[in-house]
Design a binder for these strands. Structure first.
Lengths: 217, 217
DNA sequence: CACCGGATCGACCCGAGGGTCAAGCACCCT
DNA sequence: AGGGTGCTTGACCCTCGGGTCGATCCGGTG
């Protein structure tokens, strides 16, 4: 399988099955601890078939990463109201991310649990980098209009992304036994409090009610 | 090597060499991507010797984890003034952690980059759990005396630990090109801002000057 | 029906790498 | 000198698991 093999409907489906089972297994026990045999066994097919759809194990992994990166970006975009003020947009993005990560818990567990053998460490990094850049842009805007504390924007952005990531992580690993929406709201508050340049602004931004927008997948 | 073999001075040294080289290699390319051969080659000894000092690869890893966990706790303890108010202690702990993580960057890279094949995922988890519990206790105190926002203490604790961890990570991976002390100070501010129940308190806690206490290793 | 290409199978190959071992060395102590 | 203990060696073994391959099936098309 070099690249773009023509797949029938059945083929597409089979490939997706393999991706799904792989994601689950990876999340469960990690990439290098998951054997190709495990994946095909889970999907109930023969080993050779794996190599019909994927060049090798790593290629499958990359495909998973790409897929989910796009999903996350879409979810974020959907949750952010472009007309809202910057700090509020940040809050919206953060909450959406938490929800998303909870939803695709198995995949993120994968990314994080994974050893990322250098080759795809960069892969993943690129993912967060885009995210960080987005947030940083919003923060810069916030600093400009005085709603965000005057600190290096990139640095603050790392804080936001980090916080979101960590809460996602803790939730996923069952250490935050609370409904996602509640957690998302909390993270929203946390982020706003850590960025707002003064209490008044924080209060104002937090006053806005966000409906748990049904994640557009 | 079952457990506590009697080692001569030379033996101790050799063992330490192996640990050091292993830590470096692990950090560089991950646990499962590092061959035992690589380790011994780096140390310039024969393969068999590895098994004289360690039962196997995993045992060495565990030893590394344990070692560094203790170091971190000691560094934190050293940085915290038991008589200070809770929020300030949190700040002290956070700054110390950032510095420590930067110092032992290679090791933390390891923990984080690592796939942690389920067996030691728990190992690592235990590490953060203690940390989280400590912070949570301080936060509870802060909530009680009104200096910290009234939110679930454990949840806030995750935020603190997460933030510290992420900044450590970003610094380590070279995406925060700034002196450690500066970063540590920033993280201190970030944490305080995200926890303080009002601006006045934040200002007060941030007014205290912390000297970059030379990490007691 | 013959044919074609996608889909499926599972036995097989083979190299990588964790772990073993029997023997040799260096420095004691008596 | 003889033996004991800690240290060191590198060739060897053997499993595990990623990847291959030729055979087969099956549904659509001319």
């Amino acid at each position: 399988m070099t690249d773009d093999r023509r797949l029938t409907a059945q083929g597409q489906e089979r490939k997706q099955q393999l991706l799904d089972h792989a994601a689950e297994l990876f999340a469960e026990r990690g990439y290098s601890e998951t054997r190709v045999v495990d994946i095909v066994r889970a999907a109930g097919v023969a080993k050779g078939l794996f190599y019909w759809y994927f060049e090798n194990k790593e290629a499958l992994f990359r495909e998973l990463v790409e897929l989910n990166r796009m999903r996350l970006r879409r979810a974020q975009a959907a949750a952010i109201d472009p007309n809202a003020e910057s700090l509020l947009r940040i809050r919206q993005g953060a909450e959406a991310s938490v929800r998303f990560m909870a939803r695709y818990a198995h995949f993120f567990a994968l990314l994080e649990v994974e050893n990322l053998e250098k080759a795809f460490a960069d892969e993943r990094r690129k993912g967060t980098e885009v995210h960080v850049a987005d947030v940083a842009a919003q923060i810069r805007e916030g600093i400009a209009d005085g709603t965000v504390r005057d600190e290096p924007a990139d640095l603050l952005a790392f804080g936001v992304v980090g916080t979101v990531g960590y809460y996602g992580h803790f939730h996923r690993t069952g250490r935050v036994p609370m409904p996602v929406d509640e957690l998302a709201a909390f993270v929203g508050r946390f982020v706003v409090c850590s960025l707002a340049s003064d209490e008044e602004i924080a209060r104002r931004v937090l006053a806005v009610r966000l409906d748990p927008s049904p994640a557009t997948v």
